[in-house]
Amino acid sequence: MVFSCQKVEKIEKVGTITPKLVVNSVAEDGDVFEFVVSKSLSSLDNAPIKNLKNAKIKLYREGLFVEDILWDNIDQTYYSKAKAEYGKAYKIEVSAPGFKDVSAACTVPRPAPILAKTLKVKGKNTVVYNWGSGSRIYGSYTNAELTFNFQDEGGVKNGYLFTVEEVWDGPSSGSGRYTPRWNYNMPGLEYVYDYQSSMSGGGFYFLDDALYDGKNVQVKLSRESDEYSSYNYRYDDDSVVAFQINLYTLSTDLFHHDYSVRLYNSTQDDFFQEPVQIYSNILNGYGVFGARSFSTADIPFP
């Protein structure tokens, strides 16, 4: 009865929205910088977002001008000639007609090699499956505890993003991988399930180094079961053959930006979910100018 009285009216504006430059770039040691430049639109603007071709990007390294980066008609993007290097601080200034100039800075982080890794499987299930000429034993687990260590670089602010993938092989689905949800009790560690990720499972762990600066960081994860679920594409007759740890060291701003983007992607179609703000280090604009490095390690299933 109460809601039968309601009346809905169309509102034309969500405040005054001035379009801003949007710059996106994620660099890696040894690679050239690639930039995607576009503009922001009001939420109520139904036009498609197109990349801008008339932007000018100035690249600085350690405070010194390196080069002007212009649109490359052949590659259809903005590529630098200079390559990113570990430990170096880079800055960009971006301008385009009709937009306020924007700028951003980042330092390319050093990779954090995985120093030690252990896997304890407490309970093990095995399935004997006849395949082709011979029979094979396929394994899975009821309880697993996975630990790995890496060294955080002291005095440098950055963050970590890692996934732990279950790698399987088997007759029903062939080889595949999946990021199961692990339990943890580690200060500063956050889990985000990114529905939009191209990675199977989409489970990402974020760790800010604020609590671990210069320390040998030990990550302890545990999992009670690998039972088939709607998110797990593995069939019962597929065998877990390994776990793969993928550890990204991210520049601080990329860490915050990536966390917010994946959190945003985790909020699809949930009416009760709190809204997510997208972090940006582009001064006067949106997007991210960041850098990353990568380490990986496999742990064979016992």
Binding site: V14, S43, Q196, P275, R292
Partner: peptide, 26 residues
């Protein structure tokens, strides 16, 4: 209120770009 006011392309750490609708301030 918190209402998404702006729409733009955002890149994740893997370099994938997707459109987001967000807000500047809560």
């Amino acid at each position: 209120f918190t209402l998404s006011s702006v729409r733009f392309n955002a890149m994740d750490a893997d370099g994938n770009i997707a459109q987001v609708e967000t807000y500047d301030k809560r």
